[in-house]
């Protein structure tokens, strides 16, 4: 860059220091600033920091011994396994779907694109309870395939498949949503160049597209996984709450809580709260990377 070209971002240029007796025209007085910061922090303390702190305090109320016992108990272990199982099936499926949907929407111009986009977002606007209910209507005993499933001795509702289906539904849009804006911003030039140079479709995808979107992909997977492991409402409808068999971690928390085993409930809850914190840290790191890549892609286009 030549020395005379103006800085790309005018705000980043060092501002001229105003003499101290002059008020800045676009800066609020100090007392306003501190009041606003204070009010925001009080609000966030009540609604964010205190709840977070209290999960861990309550979890350790009866000491480490009780904490470890609550987590290592057989029902808790089986709940952990079921939660992991559901996530391990749901996340990769939604990942494949997200990539296919993003490839279609971001790389091609076709009729009905906006309708498709809206439909992909649909599961976010459906109440979790309804997400569970619709699978009961399809696979439940009174549902469309209920009798057929019973005759073949297959169980979907009140069994693991139902839990997996409900989990897929509530985490459906996460990966697609992260990929689409980035792939749209990146455009098609690199893929087209690869094709012209003789790469096959799959080679183009694996060697050009995928490396370009890997951070956004990871970001989508992180969000998808957090929701998959934490879903309560939808899973609650289809699970049947059979202890040791169809209880996921969130459902296990509910049972412990309703039995007034508060310390145990919060101990298990603290596992999920830790997962949430890890998710936030990863999200923060990856988000910066994705923002950089989108900015990069836009700068390349212009």
């Amino acid at each position: 860059m030549s020395a005379i070209s103006p800085p790309l971002n005018a705000h980043a240029a060092p501002a001229l220091q105003a003499p101290p007796h002059l008020k800045s025209a676009t800066q609020e007085p100090a007392w306003v600033r501190y009041t606003l910061i204070g009010t925001a922090l009080v609000f966030l303390t009540i609604f964010l920091f205190l709840p977070l702190a209290s999960v861990f305090t309550e979890a350790l109320r009866k000491g480490w011994q009780a904490y470890i016992e609550a987590i290592a108990e057989p029902d808790a272990i089986s709940a952990i396994w079921l939660t992991l199982t559901a996530a391990v099936i749901a996340v990769p499926l939604n990942l494949v779907f997200g990539v296919a949907a993003a490839w279609t929407i971001a790389k091609f111009d076709f009729r009905g694109k906006n309708i498709l986009l809206t439909l992909i977002d649909l599961p976010f606007s459906v109440s979790p309870v309804i997400s569970g209910l619709i699978y009961v209507l399809v696979f439940g005993l009174q549902g469309w395939f209920g009798e057929w499933l019973r005759d073949h001795d297959w169980k979907v509702i009140f069994a693991v498949p139902g839990i997996v289906l409900a989990t897929i539904f509530v985490t459906f849009p996460f990966v697609a949503r992260e990929l689409i804006p980035l792939m749209q911003a990146q455009g098609n030039e690199q893929e087209e160049a690869a094709r012209v140079l003789g790469a096959s479709g799959w080679q183009t995808f694996w060697k050009v597209t995928l490396p370009n979107v890997k951070w956004a992909l990871l970001y989508g997977v992180i969000l998808c996984n957090a929701r998959a492991m934490g879903e309560f409402g939808a899973v609650s409808v289809v699970s049947g709450h059979i202890r040791g068999q169809t209880n996921t971690l969130p459902l296990h928390i509910e049972i412990l809580y309703n039995e007034y085993q508060m310390a145990a409930a919060f101990a298990v809850a603290s596992l999920l709260a830790s997962l949430a914190l890890v998710t936030l840290v990863l999200k923060y790191l990856v988000e910066r990377q994705v923002a950089k890549e989108i900015a990069q892609a836009q700068a390349d286009v212009h």
């Binding site: 709840p51 977070l52 934490g230 969130p250 928390i253 509910e254 999920l272 949430a276 936030l280 999200k283």
Partner: peptide, 12 residues
């Protein structure tokens, strides 16, 4: 931390 309500399971 503002995103905590997105990440924290609703039962918790």
């Amino acid at each position: 931390l503002v995103d905590l309500p997105f990440a924290l399971p609703t039962a918790v």
